[in-house]
Design a protein around this nucleic acid. Structure first.
Lengths: 157, 157
DNA sequence: GATGTGAGTTGCGAAATGAAACCATCTCTG
DNA sequence: CAGAGATGGTTTCATTTCGCAACTCACATC
């Protein structure tokens, strides 16, 4: 199966990855969360080739994760900003940071620290159950087919 | 810059993505969390080409995210299981599921549902501040250079 | 001996990537 | 006004990776 057909799978993760699963795409989004908005800055800060940055930004705009809007005329210049859908990727980014910090610590500490203004502490994202607020443990979570599951693909398992 | 050099960046996300940022890698991990353990099942359930599955499983083993262990002799057969480091990717997977469910809903509902045994409800992962337990809002989080930041790359910003 | 199964490996055409050069607009400087 | 930056891409082309099918190998079963 080609990667480009992956979004046909009956799977939330496959469909999510069809939009943000690309290597450089994630780094572009990292930059977007750090308030990078201009083409040249994306190129410089991610280290990706210009043509790839152009292609991925376009795909993110098509997916309505970024929005391309003019910020000046003469010459017309555009900036790329996160949409609501894009901002909603925040938990994904934070959980990646958390994992990276925990398992790739070379002893020098975290490259960046996140401070929660509400409580003033250096923090990380902790996933909890949306219903009861308990900290999430994989063993405490049961997976079952939901209403959107294609029955044939579930039967296979 | 080539993708293979990406892990040299001073960034938790770049380093995390150098190990799990590949398209198929994430789908293999999805399967691992659903208790898929054998080569043939990974191939069948992800739809990836056999050589890619072989390559990615090997890389995951090298990264100590999966562990390859014999489960029988004559013929020797192996299974791939999540390590502690691999299981710790659970928040990443759950946040991807959450995002996919929210933004790719075609009206038929979620493909899979997660039930929290503790409270019995269909739930999703909700990220909160590790220090105060408040729900996380990007605007409430300040980012600053940590002890592990390469000063030259931060000065650039 | 023939056939089957599981787990890969190999070969090869097609597609994606990466680096550098090129282009188009507009502004600023002398 | 000519020429030299900024800025934001697009094009070109050699290299790398993908994706698919076929092949191998070790054992088991009929």
């Amino acid at each position: 199966m080609k990667w480009s057909e992956i979004d046909g799978q009956t799977c939330s993760i496959a469909r999510a990855l069809s939009e943000v699963g690309d290597r450089w795409t994630m780094l572009l989004l990292r930059e977007a969360f750090l308030r990078t908005r201009r083409f040249g800055d994306f190129v410089e800060r991610t280290g990706a080739a210009r043509n790839l940055v152009a292609d991925r930004l376009q795909k993110l705009v098509d997916a309505e994760i970024l929005e391309r809007r003019a910020y000046q005329q003469n010459p017309e210049r555009h900036e790329y900003r996160l949409t609501e859908k894009g901002r909603d990727l925040y938990p994904v980014m934070m959980s990646l940071v958390r994992w990276g910090d925990r398992w790739h610590d070379d002893g020098s500490g975290r490259p960046v620290e996140h401070i929660h203004r509400g409580c003033g502490h250096v923090m990380h994202a902790e996933p909890v159950c949306s219903e009861c607020g308990e900290s999430l443990d994989p063993h405490e979570v049961e997976v079952r087919a939901g209403p959107g599951m294609d029955p044939t693909s579930f039967a296979r398992r």
